[in-house]
Amino acid sequence: MPAPARLDELAVTLRRSAVQGLLRLPEPARRRLAGPPVTIDGLTLDLDTQLVLRAQVLAREPVVERLPVPQGRRVLTAQARLAGGVQPIGEVQSCRVAGRAARLYVPRGRLVRDGSAGDPLLVFLHGGGFVYGGLDSHDALCRFLAERAGVRVLSVTYRLAPEHPFPAAYEDVLAAYRWVCANAGWLGADPSRLAVGGDSAGGNLAAVTALAAAREGLPLAYQLLIYPATDLTRSARSHRLFGDGLYLTTQFMDRVEAAYLPDASRQTDPAASPAYADVPADLAPAYVATAGFDPLRDEGEAYARALADAGVPVTARRFDGLIHGFANWVALGAANRAALDEIAAALATGLGAVPDAVREGT
């Protein structure tokens, strides 16, 4: 590793250790540092989450949406690495999927193949408002899901705005999923146990991929939607409640939507906003996770209701005290980790996987 990269990694590690030290303080001390409880819409913000947000303000962490896009991309990735920590994994393989960079995560319990049809596989699409994010920003989350759920995880990239506005990302993820279906064996995957999932913008892309898979008759067993953006009109009440001071801001959403969807008349295009799509027959079962203090909360929950009303098996789970982005906080906060444990367990159940901890009797 080049010297600048080693120094950067050391800085991230030191900052993470400092935040983790704060989170280990006794509860009364954490409350004094975080400030009075924050209660909105009958919900109370998780104390550890409030403390981390307070620490970011005091440390004058750069605000991504106020930076030029290239610099903002670097900052967002560094922040994700800080919150994600170093998560164990059996193996990580770099590959190309439909011509784009990808990573295949193989959990430790599945390194040795037993000659069966293949392993369950999650095709993961990263968040970042269609402008930010990539393989590195969601590396910790992909490692965690692979290990905890006992499934292979394939993280795929797509073209980002503003260089490549809608429908570039949509086209890329559909091409990637079609490629996965045609190459499941090469990936060590069982084509009857494929899932697609993602967080935020990645949840949007996962949802539209699932809709397309059903229309095209492609195999898909499950969809994992983590605080998905489903309605780019942003008309839901939660946008007005939580758009300031809780990580995902109205300013950020204004910026990324202008970059991704410069033609505002396409906000209700079903390929951009799955809330406006007709639900096809045989749509894969879904798990929809939302956060109580997230501007995207209400639209995610409305989408879950719409799927259920159409007869799709749906599990909708709100994590009351958490904020948008909690899935990247693998290394910070007990409530975040507990939520991710639940999400990984749902993925394992949805794909009929046996998590490694269960397989090994631990």
Rank of each mutant, 00 (worst) to 15 (best):
G128R: 00
S155C: 08
L141M: 12
R143M: 10
V151D: 14
E147S: 08
L135C: 10
E163S: 10
A146D: 01
E147R: 06
A149W: 00
P165E: 12
G150T: 01
P165M: 10
L145F: 07
D136I: 07
H138S: 14
Y132E: 08
G128M: 03
S137W: 01
L135A: 13
A146Y: 00
A140L: 08
L145M: 12
F166N: 06
G134M: 05
A161P: 05
A146P: 03
H164I: 11
H138L: 05
S155I: 03
E147M: 07
F130L: 15
L160D: 08
A140M: 07
G133C: 06
L135G: 09
F130R: 08
Y158P: 02
Y158Q: 02
F166G: 09
D136M: 13
L141S: 05
F166C: 13
Y132Q: 06
E147V: 02
G150P: 03
Y132S: 06
P165V: 07
A149E: 06
P167K: 03
R143P: 14
T157G: 04
D139E: 13
Y158F: 14
A140K: 02
G129T: 01
F166E: 05
C142E: 01
H138D: 14
H164S: 15
H164W: 15
S137F: 02
V153M: 07
E163P: 01
C142P: 04
R152F: 10
F130W: 15
G134E: 10
A149Q: 03
P167R: 05
A140E: 05
P165K: 11
D136K: 12
V131L: 13
L154K: 04
E163D: 13
A146K: 00
Y158H: 15
Y158L: 02
G129C: 08
T157L: 07
G128F: 00
D139C: 14
L160M: 11
S155D: 13
P162W: 07
F166Y: 15
Y158M: 04
S155K: 10
A146H: 01
A161L: 05
R143I: 03
C142L: 05
G134F: 09
Y158N: 01
P165R: 12
D136T: 12
G150A: 09
H138N: 14
G150F: 00
E147L: 06
F144R: 14
E163N: 05
G128S: 12
V153R: 03
G150M: 01
Y132V: 06
Y158R: 00
G150N: 04
F166H: 15
V131N: 11
E147K: 05
V151H: 10
F166T: 03
P167S: 10
G128I: 00
E147I: 02
